[in-house]
Amino acid sequence: MSVRICLILLMLALPGFGRAQGYAGLGGSAEGFSVPKPGYQFHFPQDHGPHPSYRIEWWYLTANLLGEDGRDYGIQWTLFRSALKPTEKEGWQSPQLWLGHAAVTTPETHYFAERLSRGGIGQAGVTADPFEAWIDEWHMRGPDLEALHLLANGADFGYDLTLEAKGPLVFHGENGYSVKSADGQASYYYSQPFYDVEGTLHLPGGEVAVTGKGWLDREWSSQPLAEDQSGWDWFSLSLDDGDKMMAFRLRGDRGDFTAATWIAEDGKATAIPDGSVAFEPLATARVAGRDVPIRWRVTLPDRDLDVEVSALTPDAWMATRFEYWEGPVQIIGSHSGHGYLEMTGY
């Protein structure tokens, strides 16, 4: 998954801290922290766990769901880790901060909640084996990544879902080394886009049983944005013919940087270089006082892809400490399907 919000966390600890460069301070330097390098050999299950020497990391799950009532839903469950220092300590002294975001999107409404904690005291964290990512009572708990239990609660919503992986892990970029700018900023980035999801949404109107498809992104880095980059548009598209595509555009003063991964039904991944995918906003909506594109034309001529991607709910705004748009989308055109869209820096 692309750059993702993440570094937000860096600033998050104290509300309002954040006047650094780039979106949410993601353009800062990486002094003292490890930096992703090409040719990294992943080790599992260890690499499902945290990497405290990198500044930022996340466990980011989105799912497109269909309710028993026949309506479309989307959910988001995210745990961000942000390190103030590249170490871990016990107790309140821990420099590792954790931020949870959860949301449920219905065709009419977007519910969201946010949690914040520091590491070291057990209030939030991730263990690799058995796998569990948690903050407060929210959790994404396995025995491993193949089968997960997902739970989150907000003041007016909640969900309780089980996930089962139906395919292999997918590595983006160059075997999981994902480049984010022409200057070479990069992250480690892999996904599990093949979850079958089933469970219950708790909404103000009552409980809704749902089934659907989920997509987990794992990414960590120390400085994923170039200095001139101010935001991004990120797409995860699941096409009805079984293929999937992850694609993003980083908007920069010196031009956009795009990248994508084409994922075949069997999990075979093909990296698509900068400039291949074209993104064209077709319509914007007034959301939270800004104009946010909620209908896009996405084209990839190499794969004969020319689709229109539109938001299920225009108002999928995450009015959290660092604000962004994150919501389910529907795909029509050369291909049909569904997916998730994330837009930052608007």
Partner: peptide, 25 residues
Amino acid sequence: VAYPALPAVTQLEQSGTPPDPADIL
């Protein structure tokens, strides 16, 4: 990290040289 926004802290943040959260935490 968890305490509600305190005016004292907010004032510091809005000052000319906001402190690095890493220093505070």
